[in-house]
Design a protein around this nucleic acid. Sequence first.
DNA 1: ATTTATGCAAACAATTTGCACCTTT
DNA 2: AAAGGTGCAAATTGTTTGCATAAAT
Lengths: 136, 136
Amino acid sequence: MFKQFRDIGIKLTPQRMVIANLLTNNSTHPSAEDIYHAALEQIPGMSFATVYNTLEIFKEKGAIRELNIDPERKRYDPDTSNHHHLICVKCGKIIDVFDGVDVNVVNDTISEFKIAEVHVEFYGVCNSCEKKNNKE
Amino acid sequence: MFKQFRDIGIKLTPQRMVIANLLTNNSTHPSAEDIYHAALEQIPGMSFATVYNTLEIFKEKGAIRELNIDPERKRYDPDTSNHHHLICVKCGKIIDVFDGVDVNVVNDTISEFKIAEVHVEFYGVCNSCEKKNNKE
DNA sequence: ATTTATGCAAACAATTTGCACCTTT
DNA sequence: AAAGGTGCAAATTGTTTGCATAAAT
């Protein structure tokens, strides 16, 4: 599982392995602070600088993606394939959407661009928040 | 032109009028700092706190929208209608896209949400950056 | 030995807040 | 005089950086 990290030129130290582990198969889109706290439990003495350095390297090498969804802090997504997000405006939950979304474009301004990626965010209220709301 | 601001319950002081003016008919998606500097030229002594307070009020009342496109700072958009953005990854330019974009959804997870808004960002390279690139 | 990563603390940048003063009702 | 807005400075939050130590090649 760490093979893919080494393959793209990331030297895996114990700290980085812990961070890589925390990111992989994690769909919560954690912030640097989330990762720092979780990592601290596995490596006492783990530093914030290391978390930030590691996230920077992972991002540079294309192992993870930085999300701009949360205006207060950067969040990280271990899935670098093009996918979209569903955001609950009540509880802040962010859910991945991999398929069933089709963006059709017929627009001259856009045609003049060399588009590399298309990100779609769906803002709304999730099921559990909706239920909570109805009970009040 | 200030009428619409008053109509939604915003008391218009001189400072707020300057800020409202800087925002309206401005498609550059300025940051709080951009606005502060521009406002300072019209009202010497204008404070940062006032800019932030004003942006907060405008946002609360629905006169402007806060954008999460730039990971380093919040940006503000005077257009609160649902539209999309074209972002040049080279020069950072952000261009509004009002039509010709159609998002089709066939996805159960999304169906369970009460969707309020859909934002699409197109990341790519704009024409002028593309030309610059070719000359090098 | 040289390069590279870590951890600490200090520095930074964007934003927010507390509070005294000044307006406007 | 009561309410709300402004400006200043200090505080907070998220992130980055400089540097000495430690680890890996």
